[in-house]
Design a protein around this nucleic acid. Structure first.
Length: 324
DNA sequence: ACCTGTCAAGTCTGG
DNA sequence: CCAGACTTGACAGGT
């Protein structure tokens, strides 16, 4: 099994390369000259996109081929203060350059719209803004010229005290999305609400790939092991929306006993090693997204540590090989 | 240079 | 019905 590793949005190694610079709405509305304020937002967005490209160059230098973009590349987009604003004339060039780099080096990239995007919601206004947010993520990927292998990963959402009806709403709302959005979605199990088995059943029903978060699974399950669910999870990547991609998992380690759901600075190699060994024979390729405070530093340390363990062979600066 | 309170967005819990 | 917690990086305003 070939395993690649990636990390989320920002580097702790490359300095002054934030892809998430912003301006507060309060500050925006304080500016007298709206046109000048909008130009400032556009400059921040260009800087965020350029810093993302710098991160990808850093990744390439370290053999890292998997990466999650920040969802805050364009500050305040979608806010009512910016109604009617179209930043794309200015950002088309920078986005295209970023996407070209991704394609040129065969990188796997994704977004993870944050928890304000909730398709299980019973509130129409929340559903509308969620759909608008998903559409905006697709728009960015299209501006980068990336095909449907570039995904947006989301959770199913809240349960509102009635999980079956929340599930039913999710499926119904999913059907309202445009093809271009649905083809780019993946669903991830949650640490509080929809667990891995429940998320998997939704993925199978609506035909989207599932991202297994092994840490979320450890703190939210009905007693079944991740290994026992894996064959079905892996199979969701064989469907039409899997687009020939390797299955993807998220890994992180508990912050502490007092806060088992929080993310620690680094990722412990032991539990991951155990999981990888259990699926290696049946899974030719796997991509692992590291969700740790120490970002790319944690990635390199994890790959280093894994490489010293049973049956693991290092096959690159940010890749290992197991079994077979 | 460094510290603290605040920030677009949602949901859940407890009052 | 409403306030606060949750969680995160970064701003804003202070020292």
């Amino acid at each position: 099994m070939q395993v690649r590793f990636g990390y989320v949005a920002m580097s702790v190694i490359v300095q002054n390369a934030s892809p998430s610079k912003t301006m507060t709405a309060t500050n925006f509305s304080k500016l007298q000259d709206r046109e000048a304020a909008i130009r400032k937002l556009e400059r921040i967005a260009e800087e965020n996109i350029h810093n993302t490209l710098r991160l990808l160059r850093h990744n390439r230098a370290h053999g890292i081929e998997v990466f999650r973009f920040s969802s805050r590349l364009i500050p305040l987009i979608g806010h009512e203060l910016l109604a009617g604003w179209d930043p794309y004339p200015v950002l088309a060039g920078p986005f295209a350059e970023l996407g070209a780099y991704v394609r040129e080096h065969g990188m796997r990239v994704s977004f993870h719209p944050d928890h304000f995007t909730v398709l299980s919601t019973p509130r129409k206004e929340v559903l509308d803004s969620s759909i608008a947010d998903l559409n905006r993520h697709v728009r960015m990927l299209e501006a980068m010229g990336l095909d449907t292998r570039a995904k947006s990963n989301i959770h199913i959402g809240g349960t509102y005290g009635n999980k079956p009806s929340a599930r039913e709403r999710f499926v119904r709302h999913f059907g309202l999305l445009g093809d271009e959005v649905r083809q780019r979605l993946t669903l991830e199990n949650d640490d509080k609400t929809f667990n891995a088995a429940e998320t998997l059943s939704v993925c199978e029903e609506v035909g989207v790939p599932m991202v297994l978060d092994v840490h979320h699974h450890a703190v939210n399950n009905d007693g079944e092991s991740a290994e026992s669910l894996w064959p079905r999870i892996a199979a969701t990547w064989d469907g039409p929306n899997g687009s020939g991609l390797a299955p993807k998992i998220h890994v992180s380690s508990p912050k502490s006993e007092a806060d088992p759901r929080g993310h620690a600075d680094y990722v412990e190699a032991g539990p991951l090693h155990h999981f990888l060994q259990s699926i290696a024979a049946s899974t030719p390729r796997l991509d692992v997204m590291i969700e740790a405070k120490r970002k790319d530093d944690a990635l390199m340390k994890l790959v280093e540590e894994l490489s010293g363990l049973d049956g693991v062979k290092r096959s690159g600066e940010a890749a290992v090989e197991l079994g077979g």
